[in-house]
């Protein structure tokens, strides 16, 4: 019970903090919109290519934007933890009876809440721009489940890394270094059929690809349960792995 209460009070703190930074909110809402508009312009002629089967690039790419937004957003989640370490907030908290698990859990869940709101906004804009959601509202809910698992894994890893590295420079370095390749080593930007053979193999080890495949199926094709189940299982595994890493680092490194 204490764990739930402590987590709840800290989630409030984290979300309140974010809403007190209007610029941050603005940037986070507009970035995915920029992606939707800009990328679909850049890759407009791709609509004619065989892998897309005649659908617009927007229809193909919109699920990718949802996944990308969640991945980038959650990958930076550790910066907040680092701030608390730097400002002495973490060690002060650790000297109170606050449950240990709540400190990292509240951060991860707060990131999720913000990202789910973003994902919903992207869907709304995508629909306004002409994207046709094959599975409608239930599909959006399933999408939320998929990307939440993806984001939870990334946010937990990011928090774990913050505790391990303890400084901004290396953390920023690792996140920047990792996120772009992770995105490109998937079928986020390109249909899988058009990827070179080695990349098509590599993407099967990338949680982002499972999220993209799952969400894209829901948006473009309807319920392809074989793909969906695989995505769900892999992403649950990814979330569990991230949580295990984050918790381990917290136990080992949060003095």
């Amino acid at each position: 019970m204490n764990l739930v209460a402590d987590t709840w009070f800290q989630i409030q703190r984290h979300i309140r903090t974010q809403f007190r930074m209007p610029v941050w909110i603005f940037v986070n809402l507009f970035q995915p919109i920029v992606w939707l508009v800009l990328f679909t312009q850049v890759f407009k002629s791709l609509s004619d290519m065989p892998g897309l089967g005649g659908t617009s690039y927007l229809q193909f790419f919109a699920p990718g934007v949802v996944v990308m937004t969640v991945m980038f957003g959650s990958a930076w989640a550790g910066m907040g933890m680092l701030h608390d370490i730097d400002m002495g907030i973490l060690s002060k908290m650790l000297a109170t009876p606050a449950t240990r698990g709540s400190i990292i859990m509240s951060r991860v869940i707060a990131s999720m809440v913000m990202l789910i709101v973003q994902a919903l906004i992207i869907f709304t804009i995508a629909v306004i721009m002409g994207v046709d959601l094959a599975t409608g509202v239930p599909g959006v809910l399933l999408t939320i489940l998929l990307v939440s698992m993806l984001g939870l894994g990334f946010a937990a890893f990011s928090n774990g890394l913050a505790l391990l590295l303890r400084r901004e420079e290396p953390l920023i370095g690792v996140i920047t270094f990792a996120t772009l390749p992770i995105m490109f080593l998937s079928s986020t930007m390109m249909p899988a059929d058009l990827l070179p053979g080695w990349l098509d193999t590599v993407r099967h080890f990338n949680p982002v690809d499972y999220a993209v495949v799952g969400v894209r199926g829901l948006v473009m094709d309807g319920y392809i349960w074989s793909d969906l189940w695989r995505s769900l299982v892999v992403l649950f595994g990814w979330a569990a792995l991230g949580t295990a890493f984050g918790t381990m680092m917290f136990r080992a490194k949060a003095e």
């Binding site: 930074m21 400002m87 002495g88 907030i89 002060k92 908290m93 000297a95 009876p97």
Partner: peptide, 16 residues
């Protein structure tokens, strides 16, 4: 932990 208060050298307050 229930019976102590800790005020660290760094001001551990949330400035935001």
């Amino acid at each position: 932990r229930k019976r102590i208060g800790y005020v660290a050298q760094d001001v551990g307050v949330d400035e935001r």
